[in-house]
């Protein structure tokens, strides 16, 4: 019994993490305070990182935590802290599209369930392939996909310039 549980401990954790991630995501729709929503998202991301780790892609798990939680979400939290908490919108939760959105959600799930789930590939025929190593990933990334790599760096530069430009425009306007 214990052996069975231990042998399938990976799977159990995987399901547990997945469930927690789903719950955190669902919470995001219902929490009122942006800060709480942010915390829910962070937890969701961390659980996803756990899932990645359990799948054996540890470097993606690491980057999930580092980039998403460590950079993006920290940035987001700062932004929330910068803003005025007395703002009315912090208290109002939903837009006018609550009900249409809810209906849309149901329909979307229905459509996806009707379509995607039926067409999903079944359990892999034969044993799942060896999880690819970090070495294979790095080689593929820097030799085969070098162009995409470079393009993303260009994208990042563009984003930095754009952010600067937005700030600059703002300064000009406030001066004028």
């Amino acid at each position: 019994m214990i052996e069975t549980v231990l042998a399938s401990l990976d799977t159990v954790f995987l399901y547990a993490f997945a469930g927690c991630a789903f719950l955190s995501a669902a919470l995001m729709l219902f929490l009122k305070e942006p800060m709480r929503v942010a915390l829910a998202l962070i937890s969701c991301m961390v659980f996803l990182g756990g899932v990645y780790g359990l799948l054996g892609v540890h470097f993606i798990a690491a980057f999930q935590v580092l980039i998403y939680v460590g950079a993006v979400m920290v940035f987001m939290v700062y932004a929330i802290m910068l803003l005025d908490p007395r703002d009315e919108s912090m208290k109002v939760r939903y837009s006018h599209f609550l009900w249409p959105g809810a209906v849309g959600y149901v329909l979307l799930v229905e459509a996806l369930a009707a379509g995607v789930m039926n067409d999903l590939p079944g359990p892999p025929r034969g044993p799942a392939g060896e999880p690819f190593s970090l070495k294979a990933f790095s080689e593929a990334f820097l030799s085969e996909y070098w162009l995409h790599f470079e393009l993303t760096s260009v994208l990042l530069v563009a984003a930095v310039v754009a952010a600067l430009a937005v700030i600059r425009v703002n300064r000009k306007e406030s001066r004028g």
Binding site: G101, G104, Y105, L108, G115
Partner: peptide, 12 residues
């Protein structure tokens, strides 16, 4: 919302 509607419509 229109994106959602379009997505649903096209999927269906």
């Amino acid at each position: 919302f229109l994106v959602v509607a379009g997505l649903v419509g096209s999927l269906l």
